[in-house]
Computed example of a mutant assay.
Amino acid sequence: MTVSTDSKKPNLFQLVGYYLGKRLPDSMLDWVREDLTGPGATRRVMLRVMVPALLILAPFWLVPTAMWVRASMTIPILIPFIYFSHALNKIWRKHMLRVHHLDPDLIEKLERERNAGKHQSYIERFGPRPD
């Protein structure tokens, strides 16, 4: 089985490598840019972090004990995973943009464009920010 590098989307092996932080071929840069900056990028990255955590914690739910004991074994571990995946989301996305030699500030640029209407409304209502 050969791995094609001319494709626009990664195959399964390339996708797993990408999820682990490896660089994809230049032919897939548009896909990478959309994955890291497009709609739902934050959600996708958080889910990618949650999958290994859930796989590690799932066996604890097979322990024959009360539900509250299972919850007390897993929830204190799961909460930091959720917290840190959200807190480090932009940092990881910027890192992956750098790995692919794309502009890491693209994330902020797109957010500013998305929120331009809110900022303009604020300026019209309260005036420009004093510097």
Rank of each mutant, 00 (worst) to 15 (best):
T2N: 14
V3E: 13
S4P: 00
T5R: 08
S7M: 12
S7P: 00
K9D: 13
Q14Y: 04
Y19E: 11
L20P: 08
K22G: 13
P25L: 14
P25I: 10
D26G: 02
S27Q: 09
M28E: 10
D30R: 05
D30F: 01
V32T: 06
V32K: 01
V32A: 03
E34T: 03
E34N: 10
D35Q: 01
T37H: 01
P39Y: 06
A41R: 04
A41W: 04
A41Q: 00
L47A: 02
R48G: 12
R48W: 07
V49M: 08
V49T: 04
V51G: 12
P52L: 11
P52I: 02
L57Y: 06
A58F: 14
A58V: 06
P59L: 02
F60L: 14
W61A: 02
L62T: 07
V63W: 10
T65A: 03
A66F: 09
A66Q: 12
M67R: 10
V69M: 02
R70D: 06
A71Y: 02
A71E: 06
M73I: 11
I75C: 09
P76C: 10
L78P: 05
L78K: 02
I79N: 00
P80Y: 07
I82Q: 06
Y83R: 05
S85C: 11
A87R: 02
A87C: 08
A87E: 10
A87T: 01
A87N: 08
L88H: 09
N89R: 03
K94R: 08
M96R: 04
M96H: 03
M96Q: 07
L102N: 02
P104C: 04
D105E: 13
L106C: 01
I107Q: 10
K109C: 03
L110F: 08
L110K: 14
R114E: 15
R114Q: 14
A116P: 00
G117Q: 06
G117F: 01
G117I: 02
K118L: 15
H119S: 13
H119W: 11
R129E: 15
